[in-house]
Design a protein around this nucleic acid. Structure first.
Length: 226
DNA sequence: TACTGATCATTC
DNA sequence: GAATGATCAGTA
């Protein structure tokens, strides 16, 4: 796998941005060579490879912890697959949806807010016709939600979390939420996790994750250019 | 063709 | 199983 030992984690936003800027225009093959990794032959069986490779290159703490990728800087790293028109091809996973211990859980203390407070977006070409090895990175940039964006995120989060707390999880599908939705997030449709409602009733259900809609990340990209 | 629901790999 | 990194693939 990835045996490249990255330099020390970036000590500042400026340093992180400087490192990320080096990716612009580079191909996945060049990145793979730099970190001494191999391009997966089938992305179907290596869905997270690009994200992990960029983490390694930038010196992110490689761990599956519910924390930002750069804890000292409070910055989350997200690669963003875009098509030839520069439009995000996929939604963006944020974090797992909490289904237990929901009493007194507020937006201010939510993992969604913590993760999205500051994000380093790294666009990368993702047209099916382009082989993984020759796909190029775009210009990385830092983002924090503006007032309107945070309000949209908060509204979606609160609506969804209230329904879950009330025990209406089964009524929520991915059509809920203006800018952020919840969808299954597990190995398959047989994966189960515990739920607990306001009244203490518990049960088992599919694990879910929060995802940013592609329309929302598209807006983020567009606003950067303005 | 966009979107929703399903799925894949890895670490702990 | 739970969290990370995400994309796949059927269908509306």
């Amino acid at each position: 796998m990835i045996s490249f030992t990255p330099a020390t984690p970036p000590g500042s936003e400026t340093e992180l941005l400087h490192r990320a800027a080096q990716l612009a225009g580079k191909t996945l093959a060049q990145l793979a060579q730099t970190i001494d990794s191999d391009i997966p032959s089938q992305q179907r069986h290596a869905k997270g490879w690009i994200g992990t490779a960029v983490e390694s290159y930038l010196g992110a703490s490689a761990a599956s912890k519910p924390e930002p990728d750069f804890p000292q800087l409070g910055i989350e790293l997200k690669t963003l697959p875009v098509n030839r028109h520069g439009r995000p091809k996929e939604s963006t996973y944020v974090c797992i949806v909490p289904l237990t211990g929901l009493t007194n859980l507020t937006w201010e203390h939510s993992n969604v807010r913590k993760k999205l407070a500051r994000v380093l977006w790294v666009p990368i070409e993702a047209d099916p016709g382009i082989p993984l090895a020759t796909r190029r990175f775009g210009n990385a940039f830092l983002w924090s939600p503006d007032v309107a964006q945070e309000m949209d995120l908060r509204t979606d989060w609160e609506e969804i979390m209230e329904m879950i707390h009330m025990g209406d999880l089964s009524a929520i599908n991915s059509r809920f939420g203006k800018v952020m939705q919840i969808r299954p997030k597990g190995m398959n449709a047989r994966a189960l996790t515990r739920t607990e409602t306001e009244t203490g009733e518990s049960g088992l259900t599919l694990p879910r994750g929060f995802y940013l809609r592609a329309s929302f990340t598209h807006e983020i990209l567009e606003r950067r250019k303005a």
